[in-house]
């Protein structure tokens, strides 16, 4: 499969979903989607025909506000019909603005930041206890790194040498109020994680090939959990959104939507 084309198609799905539903965290969806693409379409052992397979790999979207990205991946993978998303964030819908474990393929409810990595620690410990070889992937936002509970989980994963656990930091450097470094300094992520006993990989997180290589390396790590500091661009793939904090939670107008789709189609053509 051409993962670059897949990631571009998913970007179109996300933009369309948000445009139709009139709600969504567009910028963060666009920065994180390449990570999800590499995990779900190349590495992760998950099967919509056997959702509760005890040997499945586990995925937790700790930056739960990027739920549109996850829902677009899960529906594309066949966990539920794409038409289900017509009622995204609608009255009584289970497809809400943060991942909800009533949705096929979602392992745990997230949305409050600072929880997902600790869930992953528990899943990784369970896998070790049961002598299963599944892997656990947790994706966090960089603004989320200000939550103290994250560091409790980082400490525990390092202590227990959970090499079946891989964390990602979607390091797009923007959060609601501005840049992460203005709001609360997050540099150096690399030094911080390393100090807690993690194997640290720092890459361009919108580069499919770099992500592919990083996830492959994480699987080889022995005796240490791996974190991929994914240096990304918020709004990646749509020119007017890129690096704009305002697109954290904004819905495109008709013109913006049309332009975004056009740009993504041009991008897709380059990969064909």
């Amino acid at each position: 499969m051409n993962l670059k084309i897949k990631a571009t198609d998913l970007r179109k799905d996300i933009l369309t979903l948000i445009y139709k539903a009139r709600t969504g965290h567009t910028g963060g969806d666009m920065s994180v989607i390449d990570i999800l693409t590499v995990l779900y379409y190349k590495y992760m052992n998950v099967n919509p025909e056997n959702i509760k397979d005890p040997n499945r790999d586990r995925f937790i979207l700790s930056k739960g506000h990027a739920s549109e990205a996850l829902y677009c991946v899960l529906s594309d993978k066949g966990f539920f019909p794409k038409s289900d998303l017509d009622n995204y964030s609608g009255y009584g819908s289970k497809y809400i603005g943060h991942p909800n474990n009533k949705v096929n393929g979602v392992e745990m409810n997230t949305g409050s930041l600072g929880h997902g990595l600790a869930v992953g620690v528990g899943m990784a410990l369970a896998g070790r206890m049961d002598k299963k070889d599944y892997r656990v992937y947790a994706v966090m936002g960089d603004g989320e790194m200000a939550e103290g509970s994250v560091w409790e989980a980082i400490m525990a994963a390092g202590h227990y040498k959970l090499d079946n656990l891989t964390a990602f930091v979607d390091r797009n450097r923007l959060q609601i109020s501005g840049t992460t470094e203005q709001v609360m300094t997050q540099d150096s992520q690399e030094k911080r994680w390393e100090a807690f006993g993690w194997n640290v990989l720092s890459i361009n997180g919108n580069d499919i090939d770099a992500l592919d290589a990083a996830v492959g390396l994480a699987k080889q790590s022995k005796g240490k959990p791996t974190v991929v500091i994914a240096n990304t661009t918020k709004g990646c793939g749509v020119s007017y959104m890129e690096n704009q904090a305002g697109w954290h939670h904004r819905v495109p107008t008709e013109e913006e939507y049309a332009q975004g789709i056009k740009e993504l189609e041009q991008r897709r053509a380059q990969y064909e």
Partner: peptide, 14 residues
């Protein structure tokens, strides 16, 4: 905080 969330992760795996 970690105690409780790690517990939930373990429980989600049976």
């Amino acid at each position: 905080q970690n105690l409780v969330t790690v517990s939930a992760g373990l429980a989600s795996c049976g």
